[in-house]
Amino acid sequence: MKSAYLYYPGCTLETTAVEYHRATRALFGRLEVDLVEIDDWTCCGASAAEASSPLLALCLAARNLALAEAQASSSDILVPCSACYLNLRRVAVNTAQLQRVNTVLAKEQLQLAAPPAVRHLLDILSRDVGAARIADQIGRPLDGLKVAAYYGCQCLRPYPVFDDPERPTSMASLIQATGAEVFPWEMGARCCGAAHLTTKRSVGLKLVAEILVAARGADLVTTVCPMCQLNLEAYQGAVSRAVGQDLAIPVLYLPQLLGLAMGLDGEAVGLPLNLALSEALMMRLNGAVAG
C-alpha cells in the first residue's frame, strides 16, 4: 500500500462538506497514510462549466492536474467528491483537446504531460487500503447496525474504474469490517438529483424521496460524495412531509463511519456537523466505545 497521496479536496470540502474533509484526514492519519494537498488548487468546474463551455470545463480541471504533476507526478491523486473526480478524470481521457488545453495552461507556465492518476476516495479505500486493514484496527465495533451503502452516480459513471457501475459492491466489505451489516437495497447507484435541489426543486425532491423510502429499515446511510450527502440529509423534513411518512435517517460519510469504528471520537470525524443524526445512533456509538 502507498504511504502518501496527493489530495484534491474540492470546494465543497471547505464549506458544506467540511466534516468529510475532517473525517478523511483523520481516517488516513490513523492509517498512517499522508495526504498532501495540491498547492493552490482551484475549482474543478463542477457541472456548471460543462453546461457552459466544454473547453472551459476541461481547462478548469486540467489546471489542477498540471499543478499536481508539477508537485509530485508519481503520486496518485485522492479525490473525495465524485463530481470533482469525474471532471479531473475526464481531462486524462480527453487527449484530443490536450493541445488546446496546454495553450491555455501555458499562460500560467503550467503544462500537462504525464499527470498523476486521478482516483476516487472509495477506489483507494477499497483497493489500496482494503477491508482487512480496517478490520485489524477496530476499536468500536458496530455490530448490529444496518448500513445502506449509497454510491450515487459519478464515482462509477461514466468511468467504471473500480466497481460495477450499475450494482456496485465496493463498500460492502469495508462496512462489514466495522462489524456492521450491509442493508440490502437496490438504490445504491441511483441518482440523488444533484443540482436539481437548487434549480428544479420538486423534481429533485422526488428522487430523494424514492431513495429515502427504500432506506427504511436501515440504521444509517453512507455516502462518498458531498452532493449526495447534502441531498440525502438536508431535505428529509420536506420529503417526509411530502410522502406522509417519517423518513428521518442518519447519513454519514464513509470515512466517518470507518473512523468511528476504528475508535476515533465524533469530534475528530466532524460528526457534530452532520445535519441528520439520531439519538439512537449517538447512544449506540457512545455505548460501543464504553463497552
Binding site: 471547505e14 464549506t15 458544506t16 467540511v18 493552490d40 488548487w41 482551484t42 475549482c43 463551455s53 473547453l55 472551459l56 481547462c59 478548469l60 489546471r63 488546446r100 495553450t103 491555455v104 499562460k107 500560467e108 457534530p272 456537523l273 445535519l275
Partner: peptide
C-alpha cells in the same frame, strides 16, 4: 449554524483564473 456557510469565506487561493477564462473565451 453549523459554521459551514459563512457570510464571507476567507479567500485561500491566489490563483488567477481570470486569465484562464479569458484565454478560453478567445480560443473559442
Amino acid at each position: 449554524r453549523k459554521g459551514k456557510l459563512k457570510p464571507s469565506w476567507p479567500q485561500k487561493s491566489s490563483a488567477k483564473l481570470d486569465q484562464l477564462f479569458a484565454c478560453v473565451a478567445a480560443l473559442e
